[in-house]
Nucleic acid binder design. Structure first.
Lengths: 332, 332
DNA sequence: CAGCGCAACTTTATCGATACACAAAGCTCT
DNA sequence: AGAGCTTTGTGTATCGATAAAGTTGCGCTG
């Protein structure tokens, strides 16, 4: 392994000068700089990240904790985060939490242990009631959840607003009995409750109160969960002509489940999702959905962690992503 | 920050003893071990990975380079790799190559720089002709490609066999003119050429020679690329009653593109993909496809890198994943 | 009971890069 | 001409953990 002193010897300077050249620091004259660069090229020298980290205390790595990287939505998010972090000179290590609060707290602990400079946590299990979150004195940015009591930086999705717009869209297209396929626990403040609120709000805006029987909870936030919910929905015998889904991933399963029961979308039932995963436009029928600006979210989250890495004392801030309603075939 | 000497002082032993306890090494008596563990608990000590790495030369991180983590297939793969690596005490850093040979070579260089202990490279651009690959004296495992001249460890998919089975399946279901939607470059030895060979082989097995006009190349290995190919296919006026797709991701787009032209699957055209991404079972109609054992692939790849990390001199080996043909609605 | 073997700890010297203090040379200005 | 600056560069101590080479002390054998 080639070290800095090897390069220094080759260039006839001190290691400090090599370090200064490598890090683009001032105080090195043109000729010497060139000579050192040439020595680096010749010797094939590469900085040893561990040594640098040990001395400087920075690793240049940001942790990204998501429930499951295999789900389109999180994969997409990760792709954007990796890209944005790279732009600012950071690397990304992905952690999977398994969509459980324990896994999410583990990720925080782990992040510490591995000396990531900061952590972007896309939590679905944790909520604002968990005190352990605030205890971590560490650059953490919450991504995609709502309301952490202002103690942490937070990039939120327009959960309530988005679902409200999606529900309104269905009603405007003539749906009279709109069901909602939502997550399990309807307590606390989280993505599930906020989106459910949006569904209720859209009805309230029009002086309507949806029948509580129209709420179907999934057992898991997966296509399988959605499929199952759709079966129950179809078998309920209720006259339903529209469905709002908590996520596109669930909507995928719902679409499939409705097909299983011979129900056609949008002819018999209209369907709308949330997230605008890449598959949404490719589904048959293509899925109408709420499209938050993922790239914006990733960029903002990365900027926030990096900002906090450089200045830990900054007060926490909250940012809500802009969104667009994508009207596609499933609500035509 | 709590260091080892802090713990040592607290427990009244030397740092070396603390190190021995932390790493579960022998030579520490029961009582002392307990005392040190208690001191660790009390002080909240965590090992500094950088210092350990600097001294021991191992980082405990495996790089995983994929074209695009946002694509279902690679997300799924990553999920399995992360899980398997964790089981063996390794962490995973994800790199995106952008499906280009340059990006893939960059990832190798990067992997070196960041001192990952090894690299799992899911290459689509590089092929066996690239000499620069073999030059890297470093634990690299190729994942999902075919034939690197035996210089590198390699976990391959049953590309030819799988596509052959898929094509045979279509023919057995009564398809007479089976088109193939494949990748752009049909030269060298790569995933695209191997699968195309499988398509030809299935025909040859039955004494058939497919019409060359039935080959449609995508501009990109994406749903969009597939959709576009399907449009060209439908507009060609050729009597086609079956389509073999190079990947499920492409098949997703093909299904969509056929729907755009009013063609029904499987009534008018039967369709089969490759990969068995999670969405395949959820599509409408659900997609028949070749399902290689992803978990097996990830586990094997991780075992190979870790093995090579511990013993660099081992000769390279090649492993082909088992597969299953999933017959679903799209070929009913 | 000398002396060997072994388990249980400790000491010391590093791994490679960098912060910091300091030195030498060149330049300006009164 | 020499004080005061700036520019450019050099030593040295250090980050935290660990491999390797000591140092105890104790039991056991011949």
């Amino acid at each position: 392994m080639v070290t800095m002193s090897d390069v220094a010897r080759l260039a006839g300077v001190s290691t400090m000068t090599v370090s200064n050249v490598v890090n683009n620091r001032p105080g090195v004259s043109g000729p010497v700089r060139t000579r050192v660069q040439e020595a680096i090229r010749q010797s094939g020298y590469r900085v040893n990240t561990s040594a640098r980290t040990l001395r400087s205390g920075r690793t240049g790595v940001i942790g990204l904790a998501v429930p499951e990287i295999g789900r389109s939505y999180f994969g997409l998010l990760a792709a954007h985060v990796i890209e944005q972090a790279g732009r600012l000179g950071f690397h990304v290590a992905v952690e999977q939490t398994g969509a459980a609060a324990d896994g999410e707290l583990d990720a925080i602990a782990h992040s510490h242990t591995l000396h990531f400079d900061g952590l972007i946590l896309s939590a679905v299990g944790l909520d604002s009631r968990d005190r352990r979150l605030a205890e971590a004195d560490y650059p953490i940015v919450m991504l995609g959840e709502q309301d952490y009591g202002g103690r942490l930086d937070h990039v939120a999705m327009p959960n309530e607003e988005g679902t409200r717009a999606a529900t309104a869209h269905l009603i405007e297209r003539g749906c009279r009995r709109v069901a909602v396929v939502t997550g399990g626990a309807l307590e606390g403040v989280n993505v599930v409750t906020r989106r459910y609120q949006g569904y209720l709000a859209a009805h309230a805006d029009r002086g309507l109160t949806p029948d509580p029987a129209l709420r179907f909870a999934v057992t898991a936030m997966s296509p399988e969960g959605g499929r199952d919910a759709a079966h129950r929905l179809a078998d309920s015998g209720l006259a339903i002509d529209g469905v709002v889904c908590v996520t596109d991933t669930v909507a995928q399963g719902v679409l499939r489940g409705l097909a299983d029961r011979g129900l056609r979308v949008p002819d018999d039932i209209r369907l709308v999702g949330y997230d605008d995963i890449p598959e949404a436009a490719m589904m048959v029928p293509s899925l109408s959905t709420v499209a938050p600006d993922h790239r914006w979210m990733a960029a903002t989250a990365v900027e926030l962690v990096v900002g906090r890495i450089h200045d830990g004392g900054r007060p926490a801030s909250e940012h809500v992503a802009p969104f667009e309603l994508m009207a596609r075939e499933s609500t035509r």
